[in-house]
Nucleic acid binder design. Structure first.
Lengths: 143, 143
DNA sequence: TAAAACCTATGACCCACTCACAGGTCAAAG
DNA sequence: CTTTGACCTGTGAGTGGGTCATAGGTTTTA
């Protein structure tokens, strides 16, 4: 298979196939005549695997590591379980953060309903933002 | 004020001050003797404004635009209200996406409890991932 | 006078692609 | 046989919002 055929088979763009190849996730053979890359069924398996793993939240370095384990005939499953639980915790943290942001935004919006627009006077830029009290000022940094 | 003084006053790192200066959000004067940058109370106001706006979800280009409006003595408030509502919608979309991901992850985890680890055999890499059915395959792309 | 703490500019790095550019190759149609 | 169009190649830049490193120059403190 050439690049576009593989891309179509895995429902990604040819750019993604080339990118994954550069990143070492796929190992096509080369035709010395025209320097084209040719992929086989194993590459398709790897690509599909990589896409599923991405949807589950794995990063490319993690996927590369998983594939590397499999290449050496070690079961990657324990690592998969491990990394996955960390990722889940991270996702839950991100959700909590965004919900906090959303709360801040909604409360700002409702406070703004009663505030008139002002013209910058050298002391204020936009009261809407400057006179907004951050409810999370005391919370720690994250990520 | 020099870089670090301003940074301390606004509770950011000196790197951030320098970065915002490069980005044109702050306009310090220069001492021609040593090429140091000196900031005034107006810069501190701008920096604090920028940080509050960032916490509310505004991007740096948006903040630059708001500051630019204020510099020309136009009220940036209508723009602020406008951009803000779009950002809120975006945040809500991101939350929904992450919650969908979380749902996928949780269901995968519970399905995995009954699955044994396997060794790669040339046909599978990791059953956990390969035998997982994506519940969102039919939904459209986003962002 | 020497060390510590500050300042400068520039560029790489993070993430996972995506897009653009310039040029080479190949199939089918005229 | 030639043209057209679809494909292929590698490289490099762009996304966002900083952060960190490098290699130097300056100022303050002991």
């Amino acid at each position: 298979m050439k690049v576009k055929e593989l891309a179509t088979a895995a429902d990604v763009t040819p750019d993604t196939v080339r990118f994954y190849t550069r990143e070492g996730l796929l190992r096509p053979s080369r035709n010395p005549d025209n320097n084209y890359q040719y992929y086989d069924a194993e590459d398709l398996r790897r690509l599909r695997f990589a896409r599923k793993a991405r949807q589950l939240g794995f990063s490319l370095p993690e996927i590369r590591q998983i594939l590397g384990q499999a290449d050496e005939h070690h079961s990657p499953c324990p690592m998969v379980r491990d990394v996955f639980e960390q990722r889940l915790a991270e996702v839950e943290r991100e959700i909590a953060e965004l919900q906090q942001l959303r709360t801040r935004m909604v409360s700002a919006l409702s406070a703004w309903q009663e505030m008139p627009d002002g013209t910058p006077d050298g002391h204020t830029i936009c009261r809407l933002i400057e006179h907004w009290d951050d409810p999370a000022t005391c919370s720690g940094k994250e990520h």
